[in-house]
Structure formats: structure tokens, C-alpha cells
Computed example of a mutant assay.
Amino acid sequence: MSQLPEQPADTSIPTSADVARLAGVSRATVSYVLNNNTTVRISESTRRRVREAASDLGYVPHAAARSLRAGHTRTVLLPAAHVPAGPLQQRFFIDLQSDLRRLDYTVVQYGSGGLDPDEAARAWAELRPVAVVSPVGMALTRVGIGVLTRSGAKAVITLGPQPVDGAHALVMDQREVGSCAVRHLLSGGRSRIGVVMPQEPGLAPFSEPRLAGALRALDETGADARIQPLPLRYEEASAEDLAARWRSLGLDSVFAYNDEYAMLLMRALQDAGVEVPGEVAVIGADDLMLGRLLRPRLSSVRMELATAQPLAEMIDRLVQHPGGAPERHYLLRARAVARESG
């Protein structure tokens, strides 16, 4: 049975004083260098000497001690989402974590499964984060936001389809996705459009606004067309059942919520003898590579997230200057990518 190597009983944890002696500088200089303090002028050769000494000794700053000295942490909390993150959100959080670290923030991810919004806020507050970016699917309340701010959070930011009163908001308006997909189908001459409504738990905050966006596109264009919601589980049997009934529905196209549901339904339609795109045009969303490898290649809605200011810099600004009115930033941009499926 494997075991961890034994550590000598007299092994001591290196301190900043050890680094200072080895580098030939003061402890204050060590603190300035290792905490990336740019308000004090220190030569590059001295900074390099301190970093080399810290590396040789295996020293790292103590985050909790630094927080006590400063009176606040440098921790930005990124709680885990309660719904599966799509590729766009995954890239968003990877880039955000990298950018925050470059600004000398400690990024902590936190699992909040099984907690209601107020319980989650109290659990997050125990870590005394300086900022929280609340994920999609966690509907913070004013009570939870108050708990966080009273515990020292200078910026509470929500990410999701709708803003939350009392918090800054990064709004991903899912209506844009449904609207973009339906406008694409209408421009291709389709007029009897199905909209897939996933039956999996937790997806309603995405699917319902996408349906609303589809209906909005119909109103705005004034097209002589109709939209029919189509409940679908992410199971082959559910897709096969829908495909078997397809011709009786009288639909000539479908916005299938995203690329995964689109691929599931398109395969079932083809197996049922329904020609794509001859009898039915299919469009998904997310623009996954796998959808481009299908035959016919899958049309999709490509989404991008963009803010006027890089998000990590925006969080830093809100932390440095707390107390302002809640900000609203609409992130989501959508455009249809036409391929062979319609």
C-alpha cells in the first residue's frame, strides 16, 4: 500500500524572515515584492533576488495573515453553477480566473449543491470574499446579498438571464439566442417552426427566455408564421418518439435549444425517414465542433460574451470603489452560422 513520504520531525515552515536573510533585504521588502505591491519603488534586481530566495526556501505568503494585516481578503469567490455549464460559460470562467490572478486576486471555487440561495450566501460569507460572482441557476435574494456585503464583500455580481435587485449584474439575455435562430429560419423561407424545450431539471432559465426570444422575433418581423414548443428529454427514446410524430405536427423547421439537442433530434429524424433539410431545417446553438462534423453539417447560433471593460478589471474597479449604484452589463452577442442543415 502506497504511503506519503515521511517528513522529518524537525522540518520548519520557511518564513518571510528567512527569505529576507537569504536575500539580504528587510521583511518589508519581501512583503512588497511577494505581494506585488507597486506603490514602493524596488529595483528589478532586488525583486529577482527576493523571488529566487523564496523559491529556494519553498516560501509562499500566508493568505490569511495577509488578510488580517490588510483588514480584508483578496479572495474572489466563484461558486459552482447548479446547472451544467455550456462551452461559452466554461471559457468565460477560465479566462476570468486567469485575469483575476494576474491582478493578484486569489480565486476560490465553491460547491453549493443542496443549498438554497440564502444558505449559500451564508456559506460563502464565511470565507470573507472581497467579491462574489454568483453563477447561473443560483437566484440570490436581497437577504443573501446583504449577508455578503456585511461580511466584507465589496462587490456581489450575478451572472444569468436576469439582473437581481441590489447586486451588480452580468446579464446573458437568452432571448437573443432564440430570436437569432428564428430570424435565420424565417430568412430561409421556413414558417412552421418548432422550438425544443428541454425537460431536464435546471434548464428552464435558459429555455424559457429562448422561446420568448423566438416569439419576439416573430412579432418583430410580422412574418406569417407560427411557433410550436416541443418538449424533449435528452434521451434517444424521447427523440425517437418526437421524430415518429413529426409529419403529423406539420412543422418545416426546428430551433433545437442547443447543438446537443439538435444532434439528438436530427439523428432521430433521419432514422425516421424525415429528410434534413428537405423536409425540416434544423438549427442549434453553441456552435460545437461536433456539429460541424455531422452530415448534413449543423447550422448553429454562435454566442460571444463581451463587456466594454475586461471583466477582471471591472471587478477590481468595483472592489476598489464600492458603494455605487448596481451596474448592469449585457454580455451576450448572438449570430447565426448557416450550414447544410438549414
Rank of each mutant, 00 (worst) to 15 (best):
A17V: 12
A63Y: 01
E119R: 14
G71K: 01
A64F: 04
S26Q: 10
T75Q: 12
T46I: 15
L34G: 13
L140V: 09
S16F: 07
I13N: 11
V132E: 02
E44R: 11
T46N: 04
L57D: 04
V133L: 01
V50Y: 01
S31M: 08
G144K: 03
R51G: 03
G137C: 06
N35S: 14
L22R: 14
T38S: 09
D116N: 09
S55Q: 13
E44Y: 07
V40F: 12
P61W: 00
G58D: 02
G58V: 04
A120Q: 05
L103P: 00
V107W: 03
V143L: 08
D18I: 06
V60G: 06
Y110L: 12
W124R: 01
H72C: 02
P117W: 06
R122C: 01
D99Y: 03
N35T: 13
T29G: 07
S98L: 14
T15R: 04
S43E: 14
L77T: 06
A65H: 07
N35Y: 05
R47Y: 11
S134T: 08
P14M: 01
L78A: 04
Y32V: 15
V30E: 01
Q7R: 08
G24E: 06
L127N: 00
E44W: 09
Y105C: 03
W124M: 03
S55W: 10
A17E: 15
V25P: 01
F93S: 09
L77E: 02
D95H: 13
W124T: 03
P129K: 11
A70F: 02
S31P: 03
R49Y: 05
E44V: 13
D118E: 05
D99H: 07
A53M: 02
T75K: 13
T38L: 08
D56H: 14
P84R: 01
R142T: 13
S134V: 03
A54P: 13
T29N: 10
P84D: 04
Q109H: 12
S98Y: 15
Q3E: 06
P79E: 01
R48W: 00
R102A: 10
G86L: 12
I13Q: 09
Y110P: 05
P14S: 02
T38K: 12
G58E: 05
H82P: 15
L4I: 08
P79W: 00
A80P: 05
A20F: 09
A23Q: 08
E126I: 14
V50C: 06
